[in-house]
């Protein structure tokens, strides 16, 4: 992307700031709906960083797939399982949080150390800029053809698997009359796998 250095720097700083603040919000906000919307912002800032890195095709794929599909899917899941329940308090929660902060800071220090001390062989070969789209297409249909096809099979399997996992068991016949049910909205009552932990008895077994 042909921008002046100062413009590039300002874009980089703005996008990284939005990225990191949004990621902190995703992790820390108590309301999970706000987290999901902030995740959309994080993914959009990531697409902006891809544009700064001369990758317009991947930026478009990021917006289409992540913001358009994955984020919407997460929002749908939140609406489907949105149960406002007070979480049971745990004994060592604070200690666990502090320990994990320590672990994550250590990991961050390690990664930053590696990134800063390795002598990267920059500058590499000159960037081909907007011709990257053509190059990606060549890669997909020559030397990365097998992974490309396997990825499509993987998507098909994931689609079928998601449908099978999330499908409801429906009653094929009306309970009272025995006639075949013409609409699949009656969900069979399923007993939970274990009795619930607050001591209440499990629900009645299914007919």
């Amino acid at each position: 992307m042909s921008l002046a250095l100062s413009t590039q720097l300002i874009c980089f700083l703005l996008l990284s700031g939005a990225l990191l603040l949004g990621a902190l919000g995703v992790v820390l906000l108590p309301n999970v709906v706000y987290s999901a919307f902030l995740l959309g912002g994080v993914l959009l800032s990531m697409a902006g960083l891809y544009l700064l890195l001369n990758a317009s095709f991947v930026a478009a794929a990021q917006v289409l797939v992540y913001v358009g599909a994955v984020n919407v899917l997460i929002l749908f899941a939140i609406m489907l399982v949105n149960k406002r329940q007070p979480l049971r308090p745990m004994r060592v929660l604070l200690l666990r949080r502090l320990l994990s902060v320590g672990v994550c800071l250590g990991l961050l220090a390690l990664l930053v150390q590696v990134a800063l001390t390795t002598s990267w062989s920059v500058p590499g070969p000159p960037s081909i800029g907007e011709a990257a789209i053509t190059r990606i297409g060549e890669h997909f249909f020559t030397d990365y053809l097998l992974p490309f096809e396997v990825a499509s099979v993987l998507l098909l399997m994931a689609m079928i698997g998601a449908i099978v996992l999330a499908r409801r068991d429906v009653l094929a016949r009306d309970v009272v009359t025995g006639a075949p049910a013409d609409q699949a909205l009656l969900e069979r009552q399923r007993p939970p796998l274990l009795p619930s932990q607050d001591g209440s008895s499990p629900s009645a077994p299914s007919p």
């Binding site: 990758a55 990267w120 062989s121 920059v122 590499g124 070969p125 000159p126 960037s127 081909i128 190059r135």
Partner: peptide, 9 residues
């Protein structure tokens, strides 16, 4: 990909 492998992305 952008810094070290600019020709073959």
């Amino acid at each position: 990909s952008s810094y070290l492998d600019g020709a073959q992305v």
